[in-house]
């Protein structure tokens, strides 16, 4: 953790929606509703370039939905957002990824019946051999394929997966899959890496190595990282900035120290409804709504 009072965000006020000196991702008025439930309702959020931003919040706060919406995996009901100055609102997920915003998943998506090295090679963008006709002419893509393989091998070594290169990805342990997914995302040379719970289900011995890898993304490769995490020790350890979500809204942001002292955050985590992320009245209302719809449909049958 950088010392307080230094770094590009030292002078940024710790308040929700605050402007940053050099934002790579700017989100404006994004909402995502499921029926009556407002899963995401973010007025304004800026993510500073080249730093590690943690997104925290209780279960059901809308962190993953927010990830899905921003990366194009889910549609927003309203709102605009730009990545690196380009509007990406409503853009298809694969196009967002090609622009350099690559995400990983909470439930790891290792491509089980592909070997580890094939998983890695898939991650490279702009492959000439991925066209139907050019695929039939190996001379068009063989050189590039070798370059990709070399890059994949060096990444595998860095992530201590070199010895598994020929194995099926499905035979990796949970922690190794997390590593593979992160390494595979790096094959796409992303400017912004969005990690959805990278430490979930990883044994403590591997957690430290994963943390070092995340730090290296910032320190050695100058990539921007946004990650969702529950473990506050991890958050304090590696993040430069923390954004707190609850009930779909951003309730606080600031440096880790500022967040640790924030009363709203403590309420959100430990307050009256710390194990009931939705208020019960809210939940009952949604349930009643669903039941009404079902009743209406069965009546019309």
């Amino acid at each position: 953790m950088p010392a307080e009072g230094s770094g590009p965000l030292a002078d940024v006020a710790p308040e929700p929606g605050v402007a940053k000196p050099d934002p790579i991702l700017v989100v404006d008025g994004v909402t995502r509703r499921f029926g009556g439930l407002s899963a995401v309702d973010v007025d304004h959020l800026e993510v500073q370039r080249g730093l590690i931003t943690a997104l925290i919040g209780p279960n059901g706060a809308g962190k993953t939905t927010f990830f899905n919406v921003v990366t194009g995996f889910d549609g927003a009901n309203s709102g605009r957002w730009t990545f690196d100055g380009r509007s990406v609102g409503g853009m298809a997920a694969h196009k967002v990824a090609r622009l350099g915003m690559v995400r990983t998943f909470q439930l790891t998506k290792a491509l089980a019946k592909l070997s580890v090295i094939e998983n890695m090679k898939l991650g490279a963008v702009g492959q000439r051999g991925e066209g139907f006709l050019s695929a039939l002419v190996p001379t068009l893509w063989r050189v590039q394929e070798r370059e990709i393989e070399a890059r994949a091998d060096s990444l595998l070594e860095r992530f201590s997966l070199g010895h598994m290169r020929g194995e099926y990805a499905g035979s990796l342990s949970g922690g190794q899959r997390k590593l593979l997914e992160m390494a595979r995302a790096l094959m796409a040379e992303p400017a912004l890496v969005m990690l959805d719970e990278p430490m979930a289900g990883v044994n403590p011995a591997l957690t430290q190595s994963l943390l070092e890898h995340v730090k290296a993304l910032r320190d050695e490769e100058h990539r921007t990282v946004v990650f969702v995490e529950h473990d506050m020790d991890v958050v304090y350890d590696i993040s430069d900035w923390v954004v707190v979500m609850a009930n779909g809204r951003i309730i606080a942001e600031g440096t880790p120290t500022a967040i640790g002292a924030n009363k709203d955050v403590i309420d959100a985590y430990l307050g009256t409804h710390h194990d009931a992320p939705l208020s019960e009245a809210e939940e009952e209302r949604v349930l009643a709504e669903i039941e009404a719809v079902i009743a209406k449909e069965s009546a019309s049958d």
């Binding site: 990824a97 998506k109 094939e118």
Partner: peptide
């Protein structure tokens, strides 16, 4: 590489999508 994309879709199409 074209065939690799096809196989990745079989395994998990969202993973393929997340890789562009």
């Amino acid at each position: 590489p074209w065939g690799r994309v096809l196989k990745s879709i079989r395994e998990d199409e969202n993973a393929a999508r997340s890789l562009g």
